[in-house]
């Protein structure tokens, strides 16, 4: 049993998106619960990825391959976990705010969060406040993530949070923000719940916001 966990975490670490689902299926056939495969296999692998990346021993493309492997495993596990009533990390609605076309940072955070086990609803760039609101209503995410690259569009983050408040949805979601000119102080000022200084930090923060880290 511990053998399959180790193989799974290794497959994640090596970013092997074809081996991971095979191992997940093998584990399920052996009668291991989806929850245990997730906790003792996939997540152990992703945690190690996080540690190695932070240490400078892993590179972004490798981390993304690991995230891809994780997603491939989750594709099988997610419905089973839902059926078993297990608590999942939930959804994140992500968008680069109105007026801003700089999308790469948000995409990177999205991929990292996906790798951490979240389901991502990617709204793209130049996202109007009401598009965020519509997505919150439709997807009922645990978290809303917003990105901005310019001080003028940072202002749009403030407007979007206010709009979410006015729509009566602020209490239903956590909000985290990021982007080059953004800092913790600003996040506090506009009433966000968190600020990620970079993509891996963003994924870590997302887990904290839902009480999973």
């Amino acid at each position: 049993m511990s053998e399959i966990y180790e193989q799974l975490s290794t497959a994640i670490l090596e970013g092997d998106a074809s081996k991971t689902p095979r191992l997940v299926n093998r584990g399920l056939k052996q009668g291991i619960s989806p929850k245990e495969l997730l906790d003792n296999g996939l997540i152990v692998g992703m945690d190690e990825v996080g540690v190695r990346f932070k240490r400078g021993d892993m590179f972004v493309p490798e981390v993304l391959m690991s995230a891809d492997a994780m997603s491939a495993g989750m594709l099988i596990l997610r419905p089973l976990l839902v059926a078993s009533g297990a608590k999942l990390l939930g959804k994140i609605v992500m968008g680069t705010v109105k007026g801003d076309l700089h999308d790469i940072g948000k995409n990177l955070v999205s991929m990292m969060c996906e790798g951490a086990g979240f389901e991502i609803v990617n709204l793209g760039f130049n996202v109007e406040p009401d598009v965020f609101i519509k997505a919150i209503k439709e997807h009922q995410p645990a978290i809303v993530g917003m990105s901005a690259m310019l001080t003028t569009t940072m202002r749009a983050m403030g407007h979007t949070i206010k709009a979410i408040e006015e729509a009566g949805l602020r209490e239903t979601v956590k909000v985290f923000v990021g982007g080059a000119p953004v800092d913790k102080e600003f996040a506090d000022t506009i009433g966000a719940d968190g600020y990620g200084s970079n993509a891996p930090g963003g994924a870590e923060l997302a887990k904290q916001l839902v009480g999973a880290a």
Binding site: M154, E185, T189, I190
Partner: peptide, 10 residues
């Protein structure tokens, strides 16, 4: 009218 109703940078 486009500004926030508070000071963005504290």
């Amino acid at each position: 009218s486009e500004e926030l109703d508070y000071n963005m940078f504290g």
